[in-house]
Each structure stands twice: as C-alpha cells, then as structure tokens.
Design a protein around this nucleic acid. Structure first.
Lengths: 215, 215
DNA sequence: TAGATTGTTAATCGATTAACAATC
DNA sequence: TAGATTGTTAATCGATTAACAATC
C-alpha cells in the first residue's frame, strides 16, 4: 500500500489525522477539504495534501476528502485493523496505569500477559489479567509468541528482559524505560516514551514564555 | 543566559543530554569530548557542538567538556533548579500513575494539590496529598497561585478547567488530555503527551519493519 | 610546541510551503 | 461550463552535517 520512504515526520502526524477525522465523523461531517482540515488542525493545506499523497490519492479534485473513507485509509496505514498480541513487563505504578488506562482493543492490540519480578505481585489481577513472574517469560513467549512488549521497568533490569524478548521473536517495543533498545537491537521497532523528558521540556518552555530573553 | 531563537528540535534534545550526562557522572567520568558523547548518544559530534553553542561555550578547546559542569549548565537552562508549584487535575488511573510515578522534586517541581470532580474521591490521599473537589479549584488557585497544571482528564471537561486555570494565572500545562490547549490559549506553554498517538506510531513502525514495501 | 578538540562558518540535506496545471 | 480543490512540481525554509581556523 504505502510507498518507499515515508519520513518520520509524516508518520508522526498520521495518528493525529486519525484522531481529528474520528472527531469529524462523530460530528457527522461527511466531507472535508484540505483547507478546512488544515484550519482545524492548525497545519497548512499544502502539508496535508503532501502527507496524504505519500500513501495515495484519497481525495477527489473539486470536492475534497470523504471523512469516513479517509479515516479508514489512515487506520489501515497504521494497521489498526490487524490484531497484534502484546505483553506488559512491569506491574508497578506506571505499568498498572498503562494496562488499565489504554484502550488497546480499540487500536487492534490484545494484551495477553503481565509480568513482574516481584513474587508478591504474582497472581494479582490487573485489567483482568493475572500477573506472572518474569522468570516465566521465556516459557510464556514460546507458547504465545507475542508480537510486541510494553516496558514499564527500571533501566537496570531492562537489558536482560529485552534480550530474552528479542530471542523469543518480539520485534516491537513500547518503551517507557530509559534503556536504549534501539542501540543494542537496531532491527527492532521502538517507540520511546520518556515522560520526564517531556516534563523537563515544559520546564524550559514555561521559563522561556514568562521571561523572554533579555540579551 | 540563552540566546534568541532556540529551535524546538534543540530544546527537545536538552533533557536527553541532561540524562546522559547524569549517567556519565554516576560512572565517575570527569570529561568528555563531543565525539565520545556523540558515539554514546548516537548523534553527530557536530550536532552536539551546535546544540550546546546555542547557549554558550561550555567546552574547552583541545580538552572537551567537563561532565559535571556541563550537566549543571543544562540543568540551569532547563530551570530544574528553580522551584515551581504544580497541581494535578484528574485522579483517575492516569493521574494517579503520574502523581505516584514521577519524581517531581528531582526536577524542581512541588506537587501542591490534586483535584477530581468525582466527590467519592474527595479526601483520598494520593502520593500523600488529599484529593479535592474540582469545584474548589478557583479558590485553591487564588490562595496558592500554582505555576503549572497537569491535565489527566477526559477531553470533555478539559475546556472548562483550562479556562479557570488560565484565569487564575496558570501559564504552563502538562497535557495528557486530547483537548488542544494551545489552539484556545496560544500564550500558554503546553507539552502534550498523547500516549495513544505513540502506540499507533509503533503499530505503523512494526508493520513497516516486518513487511517492508513490495511495490 | 604538537595534538586535540572546540566554536563557528559554509555546504548539504530534508521538510515545509507555494504555485499551478489537471480534473472532478 | 465555471468553480473548487486536488495531486504534484518547484521554491523556500530550516535543520543537520562537514570543514576548518582558533586555541587550549
């Protein structure tokens, strides 16, 4: 479906298009032009047309884009329709929040297992799933072949866990840890979520806005 | 301290520099050259020198950078040394996780209050702080003048809350909601964290890696 | 001094925006 | 047909990389 070299910048905008089109759909909007969508998303019409044309001509000249169809196309590009199985490593505060807060099924994911190395948590149910000991990870993967793992563990334990997972065929990581997976396993797909980096960025931005530079 | 127009790209790399320099410091490394740091962070030496020189000449020709000093400088640029007061809106799963998981004091933040509109939660203690009703927000802000708010509420309630907060003088938002604060209040500082966008991006990346294009 | 490495300018690369012919 | 809006090429802008003189 998609063409050769889609830039990272374009890919990062796709989920946003998907969200906005979902909203438009909810509002009962049937068609939209790149200009109207641009105004709503605060982008340029040019950029929207460029982005979409990386994947195909979804519009109709003189008319615009059909909201439902375009949303469907972007959903397909993001593979939200396929089902991928998922495991979570780390049942601490963050792991719990992710397991309970994210609507995985909505995006085609199926959370199959939760692991923690603290034996005290074994058997506890989180989001309807009993926590297993991390020691049983290899065995579980052999049986269930999960596609993807969410890493909600401290940096220290991460290297070992990722090694096991990669050996078991896990190729994609939603990484909340500070371990740099991509450095050690460049063939994997990694999406890093560094919450504290984001907080530090905000710290900078706030100061910059409130006390603009004086030199 | 900093110069005129620092690009967003540079700012977003600062927390990462800060983290890596912290690690080096822990390892007892005293000095580092842009080349060595580049290898470790998987950047180019050129980019590191360009980035740092946006803020000043922190290095010494022929020697490199003093790790402790450079880290201190970047910490100062990010204003991690100042104390800013903070409130959290929304004590659901995500809000809880953020309150309990993030080490605010480490980055100079002081979590002063937690609010939720569900009366059932009022008085419950999260991270040592009793949850207040969102109705008391205006009053609390008048008394405590928080600098910054964390938004962990659904999109629907967000516009009202933000309106109140902006009126009360809150200028910075760590926004986990899908409400577009910046669109309505362009003068505020906003750092959006859209976890589901990140998950969708991973969904795309995984497919791209595993089934590279065939046309 | 000689070697190393910075700070900074110039060259390249990529991403965004503008323009417009194609066409519904 | 006339008006609107796309798809796509060309122009601009910004960010990254390369090069090198300055200097510790």
């Amino acid at each position: 479906m998609q063409d050769k070299n889609i830039s990272k910048s374009v890919i990062r905008r796709l989920p946003r298009y998907y969200r906005f089109l979902g909203e438009l759909l909810n509002e009962g909007v049937e068609k939209i032009s790149s200009g109207q969508l641009a105004e709503r998303m605060r982008l340029t019409a040019s950029q929207i047309r460029q982005d979409l044309n990386c994947f195909g001509g979804f519009g109709q000249m003189g008319y615009g884009y059909n909201v439902a169809e375009l949303r469907g196309q972007i959903g397909a590009i993001l593979h939200l329709t396929d089902t991928r199985s998922l495991i979570l490593i780390g049942a601490g505060k963050l792991g719990r929040a992710v397991a309970q807060h994210i609507d995985f099924t909505r995006y085609g994911f199926d959370l199959k297992g939760i692991f923690d190395r603290d034996p005290a948590l074994n058997g506890e149910k989180i989001a309807g799933i009993a926590v297993r000991n991390t020691e049983t990870l290899r065995e579980f993967c052999a049986d269930n072949a999960p596609d993807m793992a969410i890493l909600c563990i401290p940096r220290e334990g991460a290297a070992d866990v990722v090694k096991t997972l990669v050996n078991c065929g896990v190729t994609a990581f939603w990484n909340f840890s500070h371990y740099d997976i991509h450095a050690d396993y460049p063939e994997t797909s990694v999406e890093n979520v560094h919450l504290t980096d984001s907080l530090m960025t905000l710290s900078y931005l706030m100061e910059e806005k409130n006390n603009p530079v004086t030199n």
